Simulated scan of single mutants.
Amino acid sequence: MALRATVYKADLNIADNDRGYYASHAVTLARHPSETDERMMVRLLAFALYADDADTLAFTRGLSEADEPDLWRLDLTGAIELWVEAGLPDERRVLKACGRSDAVVLIAYGRNATLWWQGVQNKLARNPKVRAFMFDVDGTQALAALAERKMTLNINIQDDTLWVSSDAGEATVHLQRLNG
């Protein structure tokens, strides 16, 4: 019997001083059985970085569906405006996403993120649709410790630093811009 996804509910209180965006979002996301707490929490931070007042940013089936990103923003016709991918995707997948969407955002994390970027940088940096970022390792590991089935996260964003606090503790995650 296949393992089922675990449902997590998060109340996100976002204060993004860089964009002047201040809002709260109640989100529900499914954690795939092969997904780690760290990756799931990175997806939540990606949501916080790109959330908007129109509430058009949505979690997809992610790991369960090979042709979908972790997050996307669709327009009223169903066309993909924004494709957000967390992790270390293959460059062919990213280039395919560029053909299907108006903009692609990559958020790399983990110990091998720098090595991954060195390997794909030349192929992806030429594409104007791709913006790549990297979270620091210590920050995402501290972030993973905040994961709970029902959580309230206060996320403050300023100058490429994300401060996250909850009842379970706090984490500081630094965002490094790789291109774009």
Rank of each mutant, 00 (worst) to 15 (best):
A46Q: 13
A46K: 02
Y50E: 11
A51C: 11
A51Q: 06
T56Y: 05
T56M: 06
T56E: 15
F59D: 02
R61W: 10
G62N: 05
S64H: 10
E65I: 05
E65L: 13
E65C: 14
E65V: 12
D67S: 12
D70S: 10
W72G: 01
R73C: 01
L74W: 09
L74G: 00
D75V: 11
D75K: 12
T77W: 02
G78Q: 05
I80E: 08
E81G: 06
E81M: 12
L82D: 09
V84I: 15
E85I: 04
A86K: 01
G87P: 12
P89D: 00
E91F: 03
R92D: 07
R92I: 04
R93W: 03
A97P: 00
R100P: 08
R100Q: 09
R100H: 04
D102K: 09
A103C: 06
L106I: 01
A108H: 03
A108N: 00
Y109H: 11
Y109S: 03
G110M: 06
G110W: 02
R111L: 14
N112M: 11
A113H: 04
L115Y: 07
W116F: 05
W117Q: 03
W117N: 09
G119F: 07
N122K: 11
A125C: 05
R126S: 05
N127R: 00
N127Y: 10
N127T: 10
P128S: 10
V130Y: 06
R131W: 11
A132H: 03
A132C: 02
F133Y: 10
F133K: 03
F133Q: 06
V137D: 12
D138M: 06
G139Y: 01
Q141V: 10
A145D: 00
A145P: 01
A145C: 15
L146C: 11
L146A: 12
E148K: 13
R149G: 07
K150G: 02
K150N: 15
T152G: 05
N154D: 15
I155M: 13
